[in-house]
């Protein structure tokens, strides 16, 4: 009997084998958007890590009054600012700061939003209604205004910028998580788990959450690009990263008065923001192509 069972299992394996789809990463590497996105983000990560470990050509904060507003040269590849600080080193340090804010805020909003959305869809009824109406309240604000409000209440600074951006994006994750939860909770395997006496919490965490991850992964990539933009916007308004700390938004804001005299102050941080956002957007597109078969070939 055991032999028959083993033979059956083997038969299933051999039958299934040819149908197996190529792996997730292999499919992602077949998507041109995904590949370009991965290349840009890898480059961005390397630059941010170099900035984090102090591997910048000069100190990003060191002022040098003899080298003020120097045009790009061999010594200063991207020129210097009004205080003689090296723009390249500040762009690298800015990458570290913006990535830190983006990752932390997306992690916070992703976890909070997913749990709220999944709980809302799973519990239904009054819980669903209350959670989603609260999320609607947050949706009625333009993102930057809500972030402004949070920063003013909490005070400016890196950690509060992270919290502000997390507050803005939590409702988006909640909405994205709720939809698939509604369809997954009606699946037979959830009913089966319930029949076996599995607790509701365990069903939510082990049976529902893993099966609603696909749209959330796409959302993470897009949220990273938005949070880069929001951080830069808040810093541009003087409410995010505070000078003298380097942030692309702060650098762009400082460049406004000097743009005619020293356009490099605007060009390099501007390009850095665009490249970062482009990278995450492209990766998001690639992930969507891979994870949502309905959308394949439409872009």
């Amino acid at each position: 009997m055991p032999n028959t069972a083993s033979a059956l299992t083997n038969a299933t394996v051999t039958l299934d084998a040819p149908r197996r789809q190529p792996g997730f990463f292999r499919r992602l590497l077949k998507s041109p958007s995904g590949v370009v996105g991965i290349v840009i983000i890898t480059f961005y990560l390397v630059v941010a890590l170099a900035g984090a470990f102090g591997l910048t050509p000069h100190s990003p904060l060191q002022q040098n009054r003899f080298d003020r507003l120097q045009a790009p040269s061999d010594t200063y590849r991207m020129g210097t600012d009004l205080y003689g600080r090296d723009v390249l080193s500040r762009v690298m340090d800015g990458a570290t700061n913006s990535l830190r804010v983006a990752l932390a805020s997306v992690l916070l909003s992703g976890v909070a939003g997913t749990l709220l959305g999944a709980l809302s869809g799973f519990a239904g009824g009054l819980t669903d209604h209350v959670i989603m109406r609260v999320m609607d309240v947050f949706f009625a604000f333009p993102a930057i205004l809500l972030a402004l409000l949070v920063v003013v209440v909490l005070g400016p600074g890196l950690n509060n910028t992270i919290l502000a951006i997390a507050v803005v994006y939590t409702p988006i994750f909640a909405r994205v998580a709720r939809g698939p939860t509604l369809s997954v909770r009606a699946m037979d395997y959830v009913t089966a788990a319930r029949c076996l006496g599995v607790s509701e919490r365990r069903i939510l965490l082990l049976h529902i959450l893993p099966n609603i991850l696909a749209p959330l992964i796409v959302q993470v990539s897009l949220a990273l690009s938005w949070s880069l933009l929001t951080e830069a916007g808040l810093s541009f308004l003087g409410l995010g990263t505070r000078p003298p700390q380097a942030s692309w938004g702060v650098m762009l804001s400082e460049s406004r008065a000097l743009a005619e005299m020293a356009p490099w102050l605007m060009i390099y941080p501007g390009l850095a923001i665009m490249l970062g956002v482009l990278g995450f957007n492209l990766l998001g597109d690639g992930l969507r192509d891979v994870l949502d078969p309905r959308l394949r070939g439409k872009r």
Binding site: A232, M266, M274, V277
Partner: peptide, 11 residues
């Protein structure tokens, strides 16, 4: 989509 409006405005 990648260019923030404060960059376009400044430009």
């Amino acid at each position: 989509l990648a260019a923030p409006n404060f960059l376009i405005g400044t430009l």
